[in-house]
Nucleic acid binder design. Structure first.
Lengths: 209, 209
DNA sequence: TAGAGTCTACTGAACGATCGGTAAGTGCGA
DNA sequence: TCGCACTTACCGATCGTTCAGTAGACTCTA
């Protein structure tokens, strides 16, 4: 028997297992959403993974969409918080951009399942559309940093600005599809690699002779 | 009334509309799968988009999963065909890699909805898992090219090879999420931009003085 | 300290809606 | 008359959700 929060401790109403709190339910729900996709995850298999009944979930949240809303808010809060930090608001655009990109990698890794869910949205429901709007706003701010860095002259201007931003995000966002925390590469190394590849490219650096 | 294949031409059994053939059904199905997600797309709304009944779809395909299988096969065939071309098999690794990346962008744009569907798979069913296996095999071959280019010395070796490949694919695959054919940027320009950003990075090139 | 009542955290059965898919019938051009 | 390309009607299964009930820990009163 695998229990998420340790052994039975009594104190609850029913069976011999710790009662779930909302964060624990959310963790397991988001993991399932990422495994199967949100739509393909039924409340039934969610209950199975939690080791409870379907209806028990409704004690903690008001429904399936509520789980999604809570999860997306967590991911978006992490990203939005990043933009409020000092490193993102002061200094040269080039430095601010690097700060935000490093930070984005950090948030992405720290909140991996939540950001993964966010990045796979399709916008079917109102909850999803609102989350997508917040995500676009984040993208928009970073896009502004790219523009500034180009005007500063530190960033190449022979590639369209929008294309640049999108390729940049494509690279970073792809991390959720393959990065495994606890693996051989640390989050800091990952952020460093992203900055290196993004700014300097894959070609062997020409050493001054 | 919007009709995909022109105006009514008679000749069918029931209503006054051209009969669908399989490719036409597939096109509309894949578009719907991409709009809502495969699981979230019901045969009912698929029929609605086709302007027919649910059961009419079953005249053309054996079921929902069959539509998915046909669509994924089309995307994968495009990518696999690319690896068989001469430019992908002869020459320096660096040149072959650039050829394949350019080609990947081309296939991605030409078969945009189909590749989009492929890149969003979660592996819930056997059909999806087999498609993912073929996709991994494609990735594996390109990954080999990256390895060769590093050994040739043309590609930087201070970033982990797997990480390099994944960031590269992340950048390219992200194209399906934002590229709109018929927009201001042509597929050739897009491929060129990808190669530029990937190999030379975003930093302003230092002009020899 | 007994007993009544309250609260938390569920259980199990059932709901109407919708799912993918099937069966049988049919208008119409060849 | 044949058969292509559908049609309407319907199937059992599963969906997210609701509801009444309840075991056990806790609090309050006498």
């Amino acid at each position: 028997m695998t229990s998420a929060t340790g052994e039975r401790r009594s104190g609850n109403g029913r069976a011999g297992r710790d009662p779930y709190d909302l964060p624990a339910v959310l963790d397991i729900a988001v993991a399932a959403f990422n495994d199967f996709g949100y739509e393909a995850t039924s409340m039934g298999i969610l209950a199975e993974r939690l080791g409870t009944s379907k209806s028990a979930i409704y004690y903690h949240v008001s429904g399936k969409e509520d789980l999604l809303r809570l999860a997306l808010d967590r991911a978006l809060s992490g990203l939005e918080g990043l933009l409020a930090l000092e490193g993102a608001t002061t200094g040269h655009a080039d430095e601010r951009l690097r700060f935000v990109l490093r930070g984005a990698v950090r948030v992405l890794v720290e909140e991996l399942p939540y950001v993964t869910l966010l990045l796979r949205l399709r916008g079917n429901t109102e909850v999803e559309r609102q989350a997508l709007a917040r995500r676009r706003e984040f993208d928009h701010v970073v896009s502004g940093l790219v523009d500034e860095a180009r005007q500063e002259g530190t960033m190449r201007a022979d590639v369209d600005a929008r294309t640049t931003t999108r390729l940049l995000f494509g690279m970073i966002n792809s991390i959720v599809e393959w990065y495994k925390p606890g693996g051989p590469i640390t989050p800091d190394e990952l952020a460093e690699d992203v900055i290196t590849v993004a700014f300097d490219g894959l070609t062997t650096p020409s050493t001054p002779e």
